[in-house]
Write a protein that binds this DNA or RNA. Structure first.
Length: 568
RNA sequence: CGGGGCGUGGCGCAGCCUGGUUAGCGCGCUUGGUUCGGGACCAAGAGGUCGGGGGUUCAAAUCCCCCCGCCCCGACCA
């Protein structure tokens, strides 16, 4: 490709509405342009990157035994009504009617459509297992699209669905996909972690998220350096703390203290001179319409995904001020676990606590030296606090590390949730009709592009891994008006292309500094600079990632480039 | 959905508070010339319904009302 003909409108300045590096650089580099909130044009450079990511994904999925299909983007409502998700997925789905007033949605995911296909066509255990995937557009009407491609309303996803005769076989395929995903992300040149995850809206029995490590990631994870345990903070579990043996002996007499206007944990801590670790806060939740109270150590936060999962509820929210007063008869800000009429749960963090502070149950009062078991009873101790790093590993006890990441892949063992709801059954060896066991496996292709940038950039621009770089090599003649330079550049360009190396030549009549800036910005891994050394057949090679540069004879260039491409 | 901010040539911004010539600046773009190893310089040019609508006024980018779009935070902390 010739830069003079390439549609890659690069910019010196970042757009005003971009916040994170990947968004800024993809726009500055001419990879993408915004059309509207959460909607993007992907320009030639971006498209090349996307196609290269897809190529890796295709190769590895095919290798793993999956087969590619193309399913409709437009989904009839009947299928979603059958699975029960038409309303559950609700606001996230872009819904519309056709000319006959029939309801449709733009697919946010394709369990329904694929299950429908398979139930119609597969009848026998002999046709199983089956793993089908597609790479296509998905639509999710996000509450708040943000960060460019990171959370867009329309995006490209690889989604695979597998169907099995037995649970064991579904599990085997799950781990097959796990391995495949590891290979894919490794080939893409990304630093990632596979973490235990919550199954969320999709449902199913267990799942892993694949996170690309980056500080700007919306996902949070913890992992153990010692034993390799890793989990999303929405899933990470902790050991139940041991109960101190002589706990009762330490109990002091409960005491009411006057704390006018002191409500928040920080204020209580400061006012009473008691650390937050020895204060318990009480929260009132409404879970699937029923109220409950939760006590948690003052310095800890509730991980609501974990709470939902423990309670096995779909909807969870904090009670409103009015509800709190109605349910407890106590004023907000001074809630006490004593004499509560709603079921009282407590986080594990409460277990070792003794003589702690709680709300006084009336305005402007708190209680000191409260103790569970003596002053009030806990229905159940649950593990629902949010991890922030430093907690003990549930496998080996070593302190966990905390990282942020971008979720680029997610695999689920679904079980029979969809096959039962939609009647996807087969006849087994004994002639018994049974629901298929399913799994599903997604990779956010457009998000991978953003995540790759988020992980690899510097002040000059993007640093693509060679496997997904829009071009592997850029040849930069410093001055196209000088014949030796122009001719040698063209010769090198021709030769690299002949060797199957994806090469761009910057044949624009521009000053060298200008070209260097563009080459760095768009992040091509290897730059071949043809300048002063041209008459003697010497060119300069610059490695984008390391900044390393060296001179090489034009005749030896090819071998050197091939070698470097393997490393970067 | 709640809160905050923004909307002025393609891009980034100033002007608005305190209304008043012809709406500026940098980048980019066009033409000519000089340059040519880290986003050159000189000269001449093109390009604007000041997001949209309504109102106040002799006069509105500027003040008031409504609407639209975009961005950020939140939609948990009792």
């Amino acid at each position: 490709m010739r830069f003079s003909r390439l549609f890659a409108p690069t910019k010196k300045e970042s757009p005003a509405d971009a916040e994170i590096p990947s968004h800024k650089l993809l726009i500055r580099g001419g990879f993408i342009r915004k059309v509207a909130s959460g909607l993007y044009d992907i320009l030639p450079l971006g498209t090349k990157v996307i196609l290269k990511i897809e190529k890796v994904v295709r190769e590895e999925m095919n290798r793993a035994g999956a087969q590619e299909v193309i399913l409709p983007i437009m989904h009839p409502s009947e299928l979603w009504l059958e699975s029960g998700r038409w309303n559950v997925y609700g606001k996230e789905m872009i819904k519309f009617k056709d000319r006959h007033e029939r309801d449709y949605a733009l697919g946010p995911t394709a369990e329904e459509v694929i299950t429908d296909l398979v139930r119609r066509e597969v009848k026998s255990y002999k046709e199983l297992p089956l793993n089908l995937y597609q790479i296509g557009r998905k639509f999710r009407d996000e509450i708040r699209p943000r960060f460019g491609l990171m959370r867009a309303r329309e995006f490209i996803m690889k989604d695979a669905y597998s169907f099995h005769a037995t649970d064991e076989d579904a599990e085997r395929e799950y781990w097959n996909m796990y391995e495949t995903y590891c290979r894919i992300f490794k080939r893409l040149g990304l630093e990632f972690k596979a973490v235990l995850a919550d199954t969320g809206e999709i449902g199913g029995s267990f799942s892993h998220e694949f996170m690309v490590l980056a500080d700007t990631g919306e996902g949070k994870l913890v992992y153990c350096k010692e034993c390799g345990y890793s989990a999303s903070t929405e899933k990470a579990s902790q050991l139940r703390p041991a109960l101190p043996e002589s706990r009762e002996k330490e109990f002091k007499e409960i005491e009411e203290v006057y704390t006018p206007g002191v409500k928040r944990i920080e204020e209580v801590s400061e006012f009473l001179g008691i650390p937050k670790e020895n204060i318990a806060k009480l929260l009132i939740y409404i879970a699937d319409g029923k109220p409950l109270a939760l006590l948690i150590r003052g310095d800890r936060e509730v991980e609501e995904t974990k709470l939902k999962s423990v309670l096995k509820v779909k909807e969870l929210r904090l009670a409103t001020q009015e509800e709190i007063e109605e349910l407890t008869g106590q004023p907000k800000g001074f809630l006490s676990p004593l004499g509560l009429k709603v079921p009282l749960y407590a986080d594990y963090s409460l277990i070792p606590m003794v003589n702690f502070v709680v709300g006084g149950g009336k305005k402007d009062y708190h209680l000191k030296n409260a103790n569970w078991g003596r002053d009030f009873q806990v229905k159940e101790f649950v593990d629902v606090s949010e991890f922030t790093g430093g907690e003990a590993c549930p496998e080996c006890g070593a302190p966990l590390e905390f990282k942020r990441g971008i979720e680029v892949g997610h695999i689920f063992k679904l079980g029979t949730k969809y096959s039962e709801a939609m009647g996807a059954t087969f006849v087994d060896e004994e002639g018994v009709e049974r629901p298929m066991v399913m799994g599903c496996y997604g990779i956010g292709i457009t998000r991978v592009m953003a995540a790759a940038v988020e992980q690899r950039y510097d002040e000059n621009g993007i640093i693509w891994p060679s496997e997904i770089a829009p071009f592997e090599v850029i040849v930069i003649p410093t001055n196209v008006k000088k014949e030796e330079i122009r001719a040698l550049s063209e010769e090198i360009y021709g030769k690299l292309k002949e060797e199957g190396i994806d090469t761009l030549i910057d044949d624009r009549n521009a000053r060298p500094g200008f070209k260097f800036k563009d080459a760095d910005l768009i992040g091509i891994p290897i730059q071949v600079i043809v300048g002063k050394g041209a008459p003697g057949g010497i060119v300069e090679v610059k490695v984008r990632r390391s900044g390393e540069r060296f001179e090489v004879r034009a005749s030896e260039l090819l071998g050197k480039v091939k070698e470097l491409l393997k490393e970067v």
